[in-house]
């Protein structure tokens, strides 16, 4: 049982780290601010929630485990709000979304 929990924790944490790696790569590779927000801000926060979930499983039902769950809940609520606020600020300041070439949009 204990080994089972530990394995689950490691799998959760590992997949979380992979998602964070993809988030970082996306931040590097994607063409403009809005697409980067997709890949990094959110794939990244999913990865982070998985990581913290793995740590919470590892910690077990203690006060620290509960705090880890609270951190996950806070991130789940705050990350979309922050991403939305950032995107809205970008649109309001006149940033135009990038369009793939050949879609009728302006190339950049």
């Amino acid at each position: 049982m204990n080994i089972l929990l530990e394995t689950a924790a490691i799998i959760l944490f590992g997949s979380g780290v992979l998602f964070m790696l993809v988030g970082s790569l996306g931040l590097l590779r994607l063409p403009d601010f809005f697409t980067r927000t997709h890949a990094s801000g959110k794939v990244d926060s999913v990865g982070m929630m998985l990581c913290l979930g793995g740590l919470a499983l590892h910690e077990g039902p203690t006060l620290s485990g509960l705090k880890l769950v609270l951190v996950i809940a806070f991130v789940a609520v705050s990350s979309p709000v922050a991403a939305h606020a950032l995107a809205r600020a970008a649109v309001r300041s006149g940033l135009k979304p990038w369009r793939a070439p050949g879609q009728g949009g302006p190339d950049r």
Partner: peptide, 14 residues
């Protein structure tokens, strides 16, 4: 709006 943003691939702008 939060659900749309939290789902990767879609982002609520306004």
């Amino acid at each position: 709006a939060c659900s749309i943003t939290l789902t990767p691939g879609t982002l609520t702008v306004e």
